[in-house]
Design a protein around this nucleic acid. Structure first.
Lengths: 309, 309
DNA sequence: CGAGATACTTGCCAAAGTCAAATAATTATT
DNA sequence: AATAATTATTTGACTTTGGCAAGTATCTCG
């Protein structure tokens, strides 16, 4: 089943690649009317959008053969499109930058490409262009170079779809990592439903950790008694792990709980959730009770943790 | 402002094009290790996936220069990869088909491309490959010729995470398309929770429409009274629209309802959900009651539909 | 039938791109 | 500090790719 799935996915991706190869080919055909080859145009683009690049950087960025690139650069130089300033710190390299003439040549190219895309978008029914852009953004984010410094997550309040995401990610994550069955997802859905239908905004809240609009983590603080708050549904998606997001979420909860005048925060977790337990411990929670139980299709040891505020 | 908007969209598309040009370039580099050029590989692909093509058809499909294509075909012929059978109805054309050797060469190419994509997908975190496929499907549908056959969806039972997906997609879709507020997502979560916690597998069921592991649609049939079943939570994601999925889901429900011995199916919907109403109508449901109400932050007209079994 | 269109072929050629070796500067190692 | 290894770029020699235009044979339509 997983094999079949991934084979289907692979052929879906390959089909898209063939499809988009064709699309790009059509868009690139207008280059035949310009004095530039596709590679030259790409180099020109890099020069126009980066300050003082060296040939090396362009080569890495575009994956071009150094020899070929060298000739393209020379050619640009001979035609007065760029200037080459020796780099003081490394005299093997040059700083390449466009001349006025070069910028003009780029502008012309840029405009024609702009118009081509505009024409393509214009054929789409109203609303479809937004969907298109959205889908492209998803692909770019998913396949883009794993940015050296991960994009910062922000903690925000609920938006439509968030609660469903909380249910879904709890359901699928706990199923794949700990073998929990669907009853767990049902429990989360119940908590989610109860929260949405009747939460007291002044004393209860949830936070979603968000990276570029994608949810990567969640936490809830709800009323248990007038004096005691309960922390629930802490989760950090694999995509957001390793940047202390869990800690940030818990800290946010604790701060909010204190601000609301609760005297204590309590939470229920399982002994197998080692990463979460560490976070609670580091945030000043202590384990006050432990009790084996059978739930979600597994034999578990439930733990109650508390922290005075 | 529309101008500004569309300029932003245009540059988003162009940025994606540059990005994907690069991606494809990387994937195509493995072709350097094969005896085929990109164009040759594309021709080979067409030959392997079409029966008895003529050169003309391939040329149109791939946008290749006829002269160049002719030489590629000749070259394939000389190397024993294809046979050329004169077409009786038009002696200018040949029917091209792969020989065993040709199929073998293609299989090798195909496998290497398959493995490349598999490797790429393998680097994605859990769940991201489904998102990727979904986004690609959207682009292909929006930009593709109307005849692009969508990948077939299968209807299956619940898996972990599915119920959360149902909540999420209802929440975000109805928010963006009709302005519903969070209380709607809460209602869906409640229905979902109730279903998971206590559904009678012999008389209640839910189906998920699945394309390559990504959810694109849902429907539920639950007990209302002993004789009457209730249809709920019909949804088709934009990525799965336009292939009659809604109809298939409803038909599945009706068949199951009949098989369970219900005498009637009832459902509640809103007048603004035009697409859904058409589906119900075509499936033999009739509207039996209508009632204005204020819910989910909107003024709506609720409708009750029924169908005898 | 004849005029055009169509499917392909052929010759010619320039551009695009690869590969390996050379050069000059930098960095690492002993 | 001298030597070795690495890096950024250049150059020469080459192949491949693919565009263009002028053919040839066949088909289609009036």
């Amino acid at each position: 089943m997983p094999q079949q799935d991934s084979d289907g996915q692979i052929s879906a991706v390959r089909s898209f690649n063939r499809f988009y190869t064709r699309k790009l080919g059509v868009l690139d055909q207008q280059l035949l009317k310009t004095p530039f080859s596709l590679s030259e145009a790409r180099v020109l683009y890099e020069l126009a959008n980066g300050e003082n690049l060296a040939a090396k950087e362009i080569g890495i960025e575009l994956g071009l053969d150094p020899g070929y690139l060298s000739r393209i650069v020379q050619n640009f130089d001979e035609n007065g499109l760029i200037t080459r300033k020796p780099l003081p710190s490394d005299r093997r390299q040059y700083q390449l930058s466009l001349t006025a003439k070069g910028r003009q040549a780029f502008a012309k190219l840029d405009r024609s490409s702009h118009d081509d895309v505009a024409a393509m978008l214009a054929t789409l029914p109203r609303g479809d262009s937004e969907r298109l852009i959205g889908a492209m953004a998803v692909i770019e984010r998913l396949l883009g170079a794993p940015s050296v410094s991960p994009r910062p997550a922000i903690l925000r309040g609920l938006r439509p779809g968030d609660m469903g995401w909380v249910v879904q990610s709890h359901g699928s994550l706990y199923a794949s990592e700990y073998g929990f069955d669907s009853s767990f997802e049902g429990l989360v859905a119940e908590i989610a439903a109860k929260f949405l239908s009747s939460y007291d905004a002044s004393r209860e809240r949830c936070w979603i950790a968000d990276v570029d609009g994608a949810q990567v983590g969640s936490i809830f603080l709800v009323r248990h008694t007038d004096d005691v708050a309960k922390l629930r549904l802490l989760l950090v998606d694999p995509a957001g792990r390793g940047q202390g997001l869990g800690r940030r979420l818990v800290a946010e909860c604790v701060a909010f709980g204190r601000q609301c005048g609760y005297r204590k925060i309590t939470l229920w977790t399982q002994s197998i959730l080692v990463a979460a337990r560490r976070i609670y411990q580091d945030a000043g929670f202590v384990q006050v009770a432990t009790e084996p139980h059978r739930s979600f299709g597994q034999s578990l040891i439930g733990e109650t943790w508390e922290r005075e505020l």
